[in-house]
Simulated assay, not measured.
Amino acid sequence: MAKVSFPQSEEIFRTAAGVVYQCNRNNCLWLEFAGGVSSFKIHELLQLKKKVEQIDVAEMASNTARTADVVILNIHRSERIFVLTLTDVLNLRELLQGTKVMLNLNSIIHDCLHAMAV
Rank of each mutant, 00 (worst) to 15 (best):
K3Q: 07
K3H: 06
V4D: 05
V4S: 08
F6T: 10
P7Y: 11
Q8S: 12
S9H: 10
S9I: 04
S9K: 05
S9C: 15
S9F: 05
S9D: 06
E10W: 01
E10M: 04
E11P: 06
I12N: 01
I12P: 04
F13I: 00
R14Y: 01
T15H: 06
A16L: 08
A16F: 05
A17V: 05
G18F: 06
V19A: 10
V20T: 14
Y21C: 05
Y21D: 02
C23E: 12
N24L: 02
N24G: 12
N24F: 02
R25G: 01
C28D: 12
C28N: 14
L29V: 03
L29S: 04
W30Q: 11
E32N: 07
F33Y: 13
F33P: 07
A34S: 15
G36R: 10
V37L: 00
S38H: 11
F40A: 08
F40I: 05
F40Q: 08
K41R: 15
K41S: 06
I42C: 09
E44P: 02
L46A: 09
L46F: 13
Q47P: 01
V52N: 11
E53W: 03
Q54S: 13
I55C: 10
I55S: 06
I55M: 05
I55H: 03
D56C: 08
V57N: 02
A58K: 15
A58H: 13
E59N: 11
A61P: 01
S62Q: 14
S62D: 12
S62W: 03
N63Q: 01
N63D: 15
N63E: 01
N63P: 02
T64M: 02
T64K: 00
T64L: 00
A65E: 07
R66A: 03
A68P: 04
D69F: 01
V70N: 04
V70C: 13
V71Y: 02
V71C: 13
I72M: 08
L73E: 02
H76R: 13
R77A: 09
S78Q: 12
E79N: 13
E79W: 04
E79L: 08
R80Y: 00
R80H: 05
I81K: 14
I81F: 02
F82Q: 00
F82R: 02
V83L: 03
L84M: 07
T85Q: 10
T85C: 07
L86S: 04
T87W: 00
T87C: 02
V89G: 05
L90N: 15
N91A: 13
L92T: 12
R93Y: 09
E94P: 01
L96P: 10
L96Y: 11
L96M: 08
Q97E: 10
Q97V: 12
T99P: 08
T99N: 09
V101E: 10
M102E: 15
M102T: 14
L103D: 06
N104V: 03
N104R: 08
N104S: 11
N104K: 10
N104T: 08
L105N: 14
I108D: 04
I108P: 01
H110S: 09
H110G: 00
D111N: 12
D111P: 00
C112D: 13
C112R: 15
H114I: 00
A117W: 10
A117F: 10
